[in-house]
Computed example of a mutant assay.
Amino acid sequence: MAARSLATVSYYDRVSADTYQPTRHVQGAWNDHEQHMSPVAGLITHAIDQHQPRADVQLSRISFEILGLIPLAATTVTVETIRPGRTIELVEATVLIEGRPRIRARAWRLAVSDDVAGVSGVELPAMPAGPEHGEPYDALAEWKGGFLASIETVALPGGRSGRRQVWARTPHTVVADEPFSPTAAAISLVDLANGIATRVRPTDMMFPNVDLTIHLIRQPEPSWLGLDTSVSFGPNGLGLTSSTLSDESGPFGRAEQALTVRHFPA
C-alpha cells in the first residue's frame, strides 16, 4: 500500500489488530523512503499502552533499539509481557516491516501510589521559559521529510550548535480515530532531539542514533514538549544526544540517544 498524502491528520492508520499503515507525515529526515523514529516510537508506546492495560501502573522507562533503516511501509507491532508482577512489570515490543524486525523496545511499568507525595522533589533542570517566549524554529532549513513538516517548533534564545532549548508540538494523532495517552503523544516527538542542536550540518556528515532511551518520573501533560538538548561527539565516531523533557508544568523525564558519527559513503 502506498503512504497517504500530507492532507491526513494522523501518523498511522490501523489496518488490522497489530498492523498500521504510515502516512506521509511519518517520512524520515535522512531518506524519503524511511520512517522517522519519533512517530514510530509514539506508535510503539500506543501499542504498549493497549497491552493488558492497568490503571495502577505507569510507564517508567522505555528503551528502543533501532536495528536499521525503518522502511516507510506497513508496520506490525507485537507486544508481550516478559516479566509480570503486581508492582513491577516488563513488556517487550517488536516492530516488523517487510518481514524483518526493525525495532525492539522494552518498557518498565511501575506501580503508582499517592502515599509518597510528601517526599517528591525534582532536580531536573527546568526550561527557562515557556513556548510563548520562543521564536519559530525552521527544522526544514537543515532537514527534510514529512514528519518534520508536520510539527511546530519554537526555539528559546541562546541556542547554538550542540546546545539548544526547543518547544515542539503537533496537531496530528498517533493513529487515526483512536484515543492515545499524553505519554504516547510526547514520546512521538522525543526523537526530534537529535536534530535540533546539530554540531555539524546533516548535509556534511551522518550522525543517526541507534537507540532512544526515555526515563519518566510522571505522565506528561498534552500539548507542548520541551527539549533541553545537548549533543556531544567523542574523538572516534561515537556521539550522545542528551535531553531533559518538559511540559508547561516543568520537567518530567530524560532521554538519551547513542549516535554513530561518520562521513557519507563515497
Rank of each mutant, 00 (worst) to 15 (best):
D49L: 12
F207A: 05
S161C: 12
E135F: 05
N194H: 10
Q165M: 14
H172T: 00
S120R: 15
R61H: 11
S232T: 15
P202Y: 15
L245R: 12
A93Q: 04
T198Q: 14
W143K: 00
V40D: 01
I217Q: 15
L225I: 07
N209G: 02
S161F: 15
Q52C: 09
Q21K: 00
P179R: 10
V40C: 00
L259F: 13
T78G: 01
T94L: 07
R218C: 01
P251D: 02
S161V: 14
P265F: 14
A186D: 07
T260A: 13
V95G: 04
L238Y: 04
S16V: 02
S243C: 05
G68A: 05
G28Q: 01
S249K: 15
S181V: 04
P53S: 11
Q50R: 08
I97W: 00
V174Q: 05
V190K: 14
W108H: 07
L148A: 09
Y20D: 01
R106C: 09
L240F: 03
S113Y: 10
T244G: 03
P136H: 09
S113H: 15
L59Q: 11
Q219P: 00
F233M: 13
N194G: 12
Q35W: 05
S16I: 03
H133R: 15
D56V: 03
T244D: 01
V57L: 14
V77Y: 01
L240P: 03
S223C: 07
T8G: 03
S5A: 04
G158F: 12
E256S: 09
N194W: 05
I82Q: 08
S60H: 07
D228P: 05
V122R: 14
A155L: 08
A47G: 02
A184F: 02
G134F: 13
I151R: 04
A55K: 10
L59A: 08
P71V: 07
A74W: 01
S16R: 01
V77P: 00
L238G: 05
E89G: 04
G130H: 12
E98A: 15
R54V: 03
R4W: 03
L245S: 09
P131V: 06
L192A: 07
G250H: 07
F180G: 11
L69H: 03
V261N: 03
S246N: 14
L69V: 06
A126K: 05
R201N: 09
A149R: 00
H172P: 01
W224F: 11
D211S: 08
A186T: 10
V112F: 03
A7H: 14
S181Y: 04
P182I: 09
S150P: 03
H133W: 12
E142G: 13
S150A: 14
G146L: 03
A193R: 13
A155Q: 14
D177W: 04
